[in-house]
Design a protein around this nucleic acid. Sequence first.
DNA 1: ATTCGTAGTTGAACGTGTTCAAATGTGTCA
DNA 2: TGACACATTTGAACACGTTCAACTACGAAT
Lengths: 235, 235
Amino acid sequence: MRAIGRAVSTNKGGQTKAAILQTALDMFRESGYEETTMRAIAERAGVSLGNAYYYFHSKEHLIQAFYHLTHEQHLEASIPRLEKEKTLKARLLAVMRLKIETLQPYHQFAGVLFKTAAHPESPLNPFADASDPVRQASIQLFENVVDGSNAHIPKDLRTELPYLLWVYHMGVILFWIHDASPNQRRTYRLIEQTVDLLDRLISLAGNPLMRSMRKKALRLVAELKEGMPENEDKD
Amino acid sequence: MRAIGRAVSTNKGGQTKAAILQTALDMFRESGYEETTMRAIAERAGVSLGNAYYYFHSKEHLIQAFYHLTHEQHLEASIPRLEKEKTLKARLLAVMRLKIETLQPYHQFAGVLFKTAAHPESPLNPFADASDPVRQASIQLFENVVDGSNAHIPKDLRTELPYLLWVYHMGVILFWIHDASPNQRRTYRLIEQTVDLLDRLISLAGNPLMRSMRKKALRLVAELKEGMPENEDKD
DNA sequence: ATTCGTAGTTGAACGTGTTCAAATGTGTCA
DNA sequence: TGACACATTTGAACACGTTCAACTACGAAT
C-alpha cells in the first residue's frame, strides 16, 4: 500500500512527473529526440524548465522512462499471445514481432536508444550490470518464452537461453533502428528468418556432436556475465 | 592544374588539420571525450574555435578520424603477424589481440565510440552503408585473415566470412569498452574463447548436417547487407 | 496560530557544441 | 603590379542541456 498508495495521496509531484513524461514522449514521436528541447517540453507541459529537471535528472533519463513504458506495453501485448502458442519457435516469433510493433510509433527517434545503449549505466547495454530492474523484467519475458514452450532443451542451455535471446532481441532492435524500408519490412524478414534459424540451432544443440562446443560456449557466457558489474572475482 | 601547387597550398591547411587532430586525441586520452571541449582543443592547438570547425565539421568527426587512425595502426601491426601465422585460428586470434592492444591507450574515452556507432552515418554501425572507405578497409583486413589461411571453408561461407568476422570484432570492442577488469583481462579471455569457438564452428560448417542451415543463414546475410545502403543522408 | 521542514517550483546564469558573416591570407591571371 | 578568386582564420552570437540559489506551498509539530 505504501509504494503504490503514495501515488494517490502525495500525488502532486507524481502528476507533474507523469505530465512531463507524457508530453516529452508525444513530442519525441512528433518531432524526434534531438529536435525536441527541454524548454519546449517544459513549456508544453506547463511547468518551468527547472521543474522538468527536478523530476528527470537529464534528457536521457526520459529515454530510460520511455524504455520502461514500452517494455510494459510489450509485456501486456505478449501475455495473451504466449498463452496460445506452445512451440518455442511460435512463441519467440510472436514476442519479437510484438516488440517491433510496440516500438513502431517511435521509429524515427529510436536512434538515440542505442546512443544510450552504449553507456555503461544504461539498462540496454548488454554487458552492464544485470541488476537493473527494467532489464531484468525484459529478460524475464524471454524466460517465460522458453519455460512455457514444449521444446526439448539441454538444461545448461535452458539456463542461459533467456539472456541470450534478450541479447539477440537487442540486436534486432539495432537493426530495426537503421531499417528505412517501408514499414520496416526488412526487420520483419530478419525476425522470421533468424527465429527459424535459432529454433533449428537450439534443436541441434542437443546433438552429441555439439555437446563440447555448447558446454564451452555456455560456460563462457556464464563466466562473463557474472563479473560484469564491478565484481572482481577470480578462480 | 595545381599538381605542384597543391603540395604547398594544401599543406598549410593539412598541417593545421593534423595539428588539431593530434591535439584532440592527446586530450581525449588524457581527460576523456566529454571533458575535452572544442575550445580547449582549439586553444592548445593554437587555432581559433571556428578554425577547428573548418576542418572538423563536428566533434564527432574527430572520432571518425580517430577510428581511421587506429585502424591504420592496427593494420600496420597486423601485417607482419599475419605473415607468420597460417591457421585461421592463429591469424584471427592475433588480429583480435592486436586490435585491443591498439585501442588500449584510449580505453577510458572509448565509450563514445559506440555512442556514435549507433548513428546511421557512422562507419562503425554494422548495418549502415558498406561503402564507407574506413569500414571497407577494416573488413578487408578480415578478408586477408581468411584468404591467407589454409583452412578449408565452404565457398559460400568464405564469401561472407570477412564481414561476419568484422561484425564479431565490433561486438568484442563493445565488450571491451565496458570491461573494467585490470588490463582488460576479461576481454582477452573473451577473445581466446570465442576465437576457438568460431574456429570450431567454421570447421563444422562444412558438415552435411549443417548445410541447409548454413545456406539459409548466408543467404539472409547477403540479402540484408545488400539492401541497407539506401542512405539518403541530408547534410 | 505559529513555526518549521520538506517537497515542489522558478528563472536566471553557465558552459557547451555549433554557426556565420566578415576579415585575412595566398596563389593566379591580366 | 593590381585585381580577382579561393582557402583559411577569426570571434561574436546562438540555442541548447544543465545547475543552482532562492522562492512558494503545505502538512506536521509545538
